[in-house]
Amino acid sequence: MSALAEILFGGLFQGSLYAMMAVGLALVWTTIGVFNFSHGVFMMLGAYIAWQLVEIGLPAAVAFPVAVVVMAGVGWILQASVVRPLIGRPNIVLVVVITTLAAGSLIENGALTIWGPRSKQIPALIDGNTTIGGVGVSLHQIAIIVITPLILAALWVFLNRTRLGLALRAVAQNEDASHLVGLNVTALYGLAFAIAASLAGLAGIFMGGYRFMSPVMGSDPLLKALIVVVFGGISSISGPIFAAYLIGFFEAACSYYFGLYWTPALLFGVLILTLMVRPEGIFASRSRGLA
């Protein structure tokens, strides 16, 4: 019983963090058709900005939303500086890998210069611990498990039930036709990056509340998010969400039965097998689109 509870809880928790990261990555891929390798840095920066705001005396309830909004601005600026000028070029996918990696490296080292290498921590969403099914868990983690699906649902409603969301889905499917109905394609690209950066920043705040932060804290989650989107299929945003939780459960089960040491190897083994059988990802359709 407690084994099951532990795997279930661990899976839900890790899955939530992966989903928050992967959804932003998938959003940028589906709308713009590029991979954002500074996505992990967005996560780190969100956490550090939140830490800084708490440090100057703001309550967490103010600091966290402000950090998320600031991250939207950061995402927009990054898009305008290292992605937008390259749109329309051949090889844009590879070129943007380089430019976003470079920008990420700059921001990472900038954070190291500003905030130093010492580990930091930000306040938990909710303090305290409890026991569920014989497993001790923190209320912070439970809050993350509850909040994440709400945020993902809100994103779904935004994409599927609002005019602006409709415009984002349209741009993902056909850029020329989007121009011809008068959409502001450049602004929509900026918006996709802004949303992705906010979600990553929020994931960073979640992580900074239970684990020590460092300027490189985003690189492992970025790797995991990449696995998630490759595994789930990058052509939609629902695919990566399912895949995020699936991988969360898989990791939790592996860690429980085989130990943390074997988990990455097993995860990559499954990924390679998946790609051999279904190269487009398990939940994917062959076309790009937000659904």
Binding site: L166, A167, R169, A170, N174, A177, S178, V181, G182, L183
Partner: peptide, 17 residues
Amino acid sequence: RLFPDLSIADCMALGAY
């Protein structure tokens, strides 16, 4: 070629954007 994964209703809403 339009928007293959949007509904007709969605396309009409986009036309009036």
